[in-house]
Design a protein around this nucleic acid. Structure first.
Lengths: 220, 220
DNA sequence: GTCTATAACAGGATAGAC
DNA sequence: GTCTATCCTGTTATAGAC
């Protein structure tokens, strides 16, 4: 904030420039309401600026929602793929992915519901997940990642320590066990009568439960 | 259709009465657009009737969407709970649940995305899942179901054939592995470059894959 | 860059004829 | 029961002053 150099600095001054504040507010509102349910007015209020400013910076609701979704995708997919493609034993991989996902989603439990809603109502938006990988030729990367994982599994099978499993099912099973419970949160809270603390405790248990479950499932 | 008794029966006559046709159309539209994204006009068009008729039969969009959601919940939860609570060996339970879920969701792959979207944007609607259990005191049923499952698991543990697992995690793991891939469908199709047939084949593989994976995970 | 005021329109709901 | 026509509110988007 350049202008603050000529003013008395204030601890009450909002952080970040206006554009960033709008983006942050949009992030929060879109995540809890979904794109169709969100209102530009609510975003403006939450950012503490006038509605017209949203259009000044982002032109339309459509573009603003794309900016938010893209940002979410960028924080979601690349770190996960890096873990899956890293050069460590497969048991270590499982543990790292589970811990990273549960840590990350505990911080923003609305993420799975938001992303699934968006993709459901707007499937073509899925391709933004790919452009979220900045400067990468995804169609070239993906198959080789899958093949490396297939090789690693095959080595375990040959050594007699693992049962065979297709790498696609390996990945889908792993992220299902981590992510789906957050998408189920409202239902678990009602159907199993959980309160917020109960849910947090439940997720905390899963940090060890899912790792143990998954590693046992891999055994020969 | 009483009036057809006085007319020449026609194979071109739409099936079902008007109210049912509207409900069916609403079901299709809400499932693909979500409640906020759906338009009363689109439902009317799909049902082949006038927009005003929707209000004649269902009073408001709100009520129509509740009718659809409730119907979906009723087809979703009770059969699952019956399987989980049935009096068969636990391995058999796992197999039955997986097959029932995958069969059911292959018929309506939009279901998981729809339900998750609804619950995300309208968490209080989760209680309709409970009223979907017609005439059952859910708060009394749920704990005893969980306890019966806990007992069954404990027996396996005692016999030395199973490792211990909390019944809540047992259930969440099982339905995660079955349901989540459908919620991921748009992403899998894009990120893994699947077409519709590829996805169907992938689900077909999971009928055996998930059962094998899960049963191995339960082993001592 | 930021605001106020207002245009422009989409979409849910109702009145009333048939 | 079903339609046409219309109302009316909420929401996105823009014009224009400061």
């Amino acid at each position: 904030m350049v202008k603050s150099s000529s003013e008395t600095p204030s601890v009450f001054e909002r952080d970040g420039d206006t554009e960033q504040r709008i983006l942050d507010a949009a992030h929060r509102v879109f995540l809890r309401r979904g794109t169709t349910g969100a209102r530009m007015q609510e975003i403006a209020d939450e950012a503490g600026v006038n509605k017209a400013l949203l259009h000044y910076y982002f032109r339309s609701k459509e573009r603003l929602s794309e900016a938010v979704f893209q940002q979410v995708a960028r924080r979601l997919l690349p770190p996960l793929l890096e873990l899956i493609d890293s050069d460590v034993p497969i048991e270590e991989k499982v543990q790292r992915v589970v811990h990273w996902e549960l840590d990350h989603l505990s911080q923003s439990p609305l993420l799975p519901g938001y992303v699934i809603s968006e993709l459901h109502q707007n499937p073509e938006r899925a391709h933004q997940f790919i452009t979220a990988m900045t400067g990468v030729q995804w169609s070239l990367i993906a198959p080789s990642m899958i093949e490396r994982l297939r090789t690693q599994i095959a080595e375990g099978v040959e050594a007699g320590t693992m049962r065979p499993i297709a790498p696609e099912h390996f990945i889908v099973n792993l992220i299902s066990l981590c992510i789906f419970p957050f998408a189920l949160k409202p239902m678990l809270m009602t159907v199993l009568g959980m309160r917020n603390e109960d849910f947090d405790r439940f997720i905390e248990q899963r940090r060890t439960e899912v790792v143990a479950f998954f590693l046992q499932a891999l055994r020969a």
